[in-house]
Amino acid sequence: MKEFAYSRANGVREALVMVAEQENGRFLGGGTNLVDLMKRGVEAPDLLVDVRSLPLAGVREDDDGDVVIGATTTNSDAAAHPEVRRRYPALSQAVLAGASGQLRNVATVAGNLLQRTRCAFFADLSTACNKRVPGSGCAALAGVHHNHAILGTSPSCVATNPSDMAVSLMLFDAVVHYETLDGEGEIPLSRFYRPVGDTPHVETALPAGALITSVRLPRATAGERSRYRKVRERASYAFATVSVAADLEVRAGRVHEVRIALGGVASHPWRARIAEEELRGGPAVPERFRAAAEAELAAARALPHNGYKVTLARNLIQSVLTEIAG
């Protein structure tokens, strides 16, 4: 690991200045992803600015009735918060389905959003990876890729975003709030993660040096029946192969409102808007759920070893919607 300086910030502006003044300064949340990648040599900052001392932790309701989760709130505290559990249960479930109790106790909400892919080639300096070293190639295309992406991929990169939390945030149309030295800004999660294209190393639309301050859950998207279901290679403490966050409102046997987001299938949490469109207004029956899932997955491009994800995603969408319609 390369040597680095460490500082604690007491104010947002102070934190922004400290990172701006250093060529390769980074914010440190719980460190569960950054320290891991520093040990592997994938990340090599010169300065870590610890943001857990900032007054950004906690969950509150704003004047519009939106739920605002502070950036340094731990994953555990976000999942356990009564308002999150009541109005956005799929978010609680997604967070609880991720990592382990020990990791969730230190991992922050902002750190979770910005965690990097678990593609083995990204973490292995001896292999080609366009995300780690732009232009070096992608070893996953011809390598071990049974857990790689099937949607929105490019010849440059087929890695997935590993976050469970972000899938449910995508479901609820969450908004990321940040601050830079130029002032405050916000980005809807639907535009937060950038398409892969030929720049897989550019992952988000967050301005350079920006500090995430909170994540806001709009009141209008709350869904008491929303659910998150994750399939993985062991029962717990493993990343998703495919996961689904969904919410559905049925009126007189017809789909009144539906929202679906997928994890483990793309470089970012995947909102299944084609399936949603197919379903709106139609009968809320399993055959229709399946047909809508198939319409969404028509664009899937499987690699030699991850074709099973197409079937898995279809079945999961059908099963979770059927369960909510129950």
Partner: peptide, 10 residues
Amino acid sequence: GRRVVSCLTL
């Protein structure tokens, strides 16, 4: 008072 892994904490 909270359980954490000490290998990823500085």
